[in-house]
Amino acid sequence: MKKLILYIFINLLTISSIYASNTNIKQARVIGVFDKDGNGENVQHIRKTKADYNGICFTKIVVIGDFYHTKPIVYIGKSKGIFQKQEPVYNKYKIKIGTILIYKHFNVSKGYVKITLDNKLFDYRVFVK
């Protein structure tokens, strides 16, 4: 009977650890802001965009590390981004080191780009006009 209880307990721990939402994220940064026509700018090393992105726009972010069952949440001001697609990022040895994610935003007026994952803030430095 003790072996059966121990066996069930170990199986429950194994199953719960497989489906846990552990993340191993080192960085998450916004790298680009684009309008619906595809015109945009690289925002890696600036604090404020040059163009106005009112209405519909897209953000491109890069996540260095692994995220398993959750996706980052991206805001521009009060506009929450809707996930569109992702692309893997590889180093020179063909090892996956991160992911590029593209989000679509509606009704953008102005505000900071905010990237969060599991209630942890990763980026809040670029102001979009």
Rank of each mutant, 00 (worst) to 15 (best):
K50T: 06
I115Q: 10
C57W: 02
V33C: 10
I8H: 05
Y7L: 11
K36F: 12
K92S: 08
I115R: 06
Y19L: 15
F67Q: 11
I100M: 15
F127R: 07
Q27C: 00
I18M: 14
Y112L: 11
N54D: 10
F127C: 08
K129F: 04
H69P: 01
I82F: 01
R47P: 00
K96I: 12
V43Y: 05
T99P: 04
K94G: 01
K96E: 15
R29F: 03
G81K: 02
I15H: 00
K36Q: 14
G111E: 08
L12F: 12
F83C: 02
R125E: 10
L4S: 03
K50A: 02
Y124H: 12
I73M: 04
N91R: 08
D37S: 14
I31S: 08
N11H: 00
R29T: 10
K114S: 02
F58K: 15
T49R: 05
H69G: 14
T70M: 09
V113Y: 06
N91M: 11
Y19T: 04
I46W: 02
G111H: 07
K60W: 08
V43E: 08
F67P: 01
Y124A: 00
L121A: 00
S16V: 11
S21G: 06
V63F: 02
V126F: 06
R29K: 10
D118G: 03
S21L: 03
V74N: 08
V33M: 08
K3H: 04
L6I: 13
Y75W: 11
Q86Y: 12
K2L: 08
H45L: 07
I115Y: 05
L4C: 00
S17W: 09
D66L: 09
G81N: 03
R29M: 04
R29Q: 09
D35P: 13
V74A: 04
N24M: 09
E41H: 05
N39Y: 09
Y68E: 14
F67K: 11
I56F: 02
D66A: 06
I46C: 05
D123V: 00
D123A: 07
K48Y: 07
T14M: 10
H105L: 02
V33I: 15
N42W: 05
G32H: 08
V74I: 07
K85A: 06
A20E: 14
I46K: 10
Y103C: 06
Y90F: 15
C57P: 07
F83I: 10
V128Q: 11
Q27K: 11
G77H: 05
G65S: 08
N91G: 08
V108M: 01
Q44K: 11
G98T: 09
Y124V: 00
K60D: 14
Q86K: 15
L6W: 03
I95P: 03
Q44I: 12
A51E: 09
L12I: 10
N119F: 04
G111S: 04
N119R: 08
K36N: 13
V126I: 15
T49L: 05
I97Q: 09
K80P: 03
Q86E: 15
N24Q: 13
K120R: 07
L13H: 02
V62W: 00
G81Y: 03
D123G: 02
K80N: 04
F106Y: 13
S109D: 10
F106T: 13
V126Q: 07
L101G: 01
I64H: 03
V126T: 10
